[in-house]
Computed example of a mutant assay.
Amino acid sequence: MLYIFSGLPGTGKSTLATALSRICNGCYLRVDTIEQTMKNAGISLEGPEGYAIAYALAEDNLRLGMNVIADTVNPIELTREAWRRAAENAKSAFREIEIVCTDLDEHKRRIETRKTSVKGLTLPTWKAVQNREYHPWTGDRIIIDTAGATPEQSIQQLCNELGLSADWYLTAT
């Protein structure tokens, strides 16, 4: 199964994607890690190179029978379709998941106070997040609104939507 995450920075996307990776023992692909590693190696990014690498890695791991969790902003239909195509090429099912934070004050606070585990990654400012290109969804997807919810509540909601049990994970954290 390919779990395709989508959402603006600071919505809780990486928190939920990493939790799901642990819950379903899946391969975790974070485009921020791919792109920053390329930059750290002196490779300049001209466009969607990081996404293209992530699509290829997803296909490889799906063909091996692994669950894959794609952690990306996934802002436009072109990227969303490319993820679907990666699953279809690997003859795998997929689920699309959009993470939102409808409380703008909370979202802003998260952006202004968060840290990253990706070495060298410069996190976007609140203004950059507000100005980021992000097209509205038109297709079917799971929507998780993290506003006013703890990470544990959001993980439980996501697992309920996916038909997975998060009990062992939530008691272990």
Rank of each mutant, 00 (worst) to 15 (best):
M1K: 07
L8Y: 01
P9A: 11
G12L: 05
K13M: 02
T18M: 14
A19N: 15
S21K: 08
I23G: 05
I23Y: 07
N25Y: 09
G26P: 00
Y28A: 04
M38K: 11
A41T: 05
G42S: 08
G42I: 09
S44I: 12
L45H: 13
L45F: 12
E46G: 12
E49P: 01
G50C: 07
Y55H: 06
L57F: 07
A58M: 03
N61P: 06
R63T: 11
L64A: 09
L64H: 15
A70N: 03
A70S: 12
T72F: 02
T72N: 03
T79N: 13
R80S: 00
E81W: 02
R85V: 05
N89M: 07
F94S: 02
E96W: 03
C101V: 15
E106A: 08
H107N: 12
K108T: 15
R109F: 12
R109G: 08
R109Q: 05
R110L: 12
R110E: 10
E112W: 11
S117F: 14
S117Q: 14
G120D: 14
L121R: 03
L121S: 08
T122Q: 09
L123P: 02
P124A: 09
K127C: 12
A128C: 08
Q130L: 10
E133W: 06
E133G: 04
Y134A: 00
Y134D: 04
P136S: 09
G139K: 00
D140A: 08
I144W: 10
I144P: 06
D145T: 03
T146R: 04
T146C: 14
T150D: 11
T150Q: 10
S154I: 06
I155E: 04
I155F: 06
I155A: 07
I155G: 03
L158Y: 14
C159A: 11
E161M: 13
G163Y: 06
L164F: 15
A166Q: 05
W168V: 09
T171E: 13
T173L: 09
